[in-house]
Amino acid sequence: MSDKLIKRRRLTMSWNFEKEEQWLNEMSRDGMHFKKASMASSFFAKDESVRYTYRLDYQTGQKLGSSKFQEYIDLYQDAGWEYVSSYGSLWHYFRREWQPGEEPRLYTDRDSLIQLYKRLQGVMAVMMLVNLVIMLANMVNLRNFFSGDRLWTIGLPVTVLYLLLFGVLGYGCWRMQKKVNALKL
């Protein structure tokens, strides 16, 4: 086992956290164990002698290092989950040693899973609203950019960027709603 961390591109979106879990689990199967995540990369430690099952948890209102956060990871630890790291104090990575035929989960009933998806959806909805306010505020400033050739250099690119962000967030909200609906009877 070496202490050197290996960097890999990370391209998953928030609503695809199950896919990220799957990826981390496959990496772990191949001896690459997730340590921490940054904006666009994930870092792994190589160790052929172990294999883990990784799970992501999403919690708002957690301050890393606070006593509330300590209670949170203590509870998960009691349940057999080792705390690995957090990303942006919202996403928390846990793992436990892999066992054949076992599929351990953090969320074991429909209601708590629905709550989890709704927490995610709520944050994306808020981000959309914030984005809207910023966009409108900027539109007022940018109004003079929309005239003449500035339209192509500033006006249009900025608008496209905002719309793209809207699209991504809107799509995320919609995906969460689909997941919630699929769970409801």
């Binding site: 948890d57 509870l75 998960y76 989950w81 074991t108 708590s112």
Partner: peptide
């Protein structure tokens, strides 16, 4: 967690996330 599993005869295993949220 333990008591729930015991009382339900092993049927109900509360996941950490489920328990924490609940």
């Amino acid at each position: 967690m333990q008591d729930t599993e015991k009382r339900s005869g092993g049927r109900v295993k509360l996941g950490a996330g489920t328990l924490y949220t609940a």
